[in-house]
């Protein structure tokens, strides 16, 4: 079985990461923004795994498990915040949520 070249995987990862980041910047729906963050995290995970394989270092694999755990917690908290935000502000549109400006 022929191996995939590392640069292919890494390029793929950075494409996915920047797709996620672009979504984070330009999408207005908070749910979508959250999903974009997930996308970025997973791109990072893939990068970790790639380098773990490449450098024969298990630390990368371990970091991935941590990130998955933290991402799960973050999603739970994030969704909870979105629900609470929708209840108080009646909106999930980031253009209308600019409380930091005050």
């Amino acid at each position: 079985m022929s191996q995939v070249e590392p640069w292919v995987v890494l390029s793929f990862c950075s494409i996915i990461f920047f797709i996620g980041f672009t979504g984070l910047l330009i999408r207005r729906n908070i749910l979508v923004v959250l999903m974009c963050i997930e996308l970025m995290l997973n791109a990072v995970n893939l990068t970790f795994v790639t380098y773990a394989k490449l450098l024969q270092n298990l630390g990368g694999q371990v970091a991935v498990f941590f990130i998955i755990t933290v991402a799960a917690a973050e999603t739970a908290v994030g969704l909870g915040l979105v629900v609470a935000m929708f209840r108080t502000l009646r909106s999930v549109d980031t253009d209308q949520i600019q409380l930091l400006r005050e």
Binding site: F21, L24, L25, I26, V33, T94, D95, Q98, L99, L100, R101, E102
Partner: peptide
């Protein structure tokens, strides 16, 4: 500079 929009902040961070 203080727009209050998190996305702008994130862009600046980028």
């Amino acid at each position: 500079i203080q727009t209050g929009s998190i996305q702008v902040y994130a862009f600046v961070i980028l």
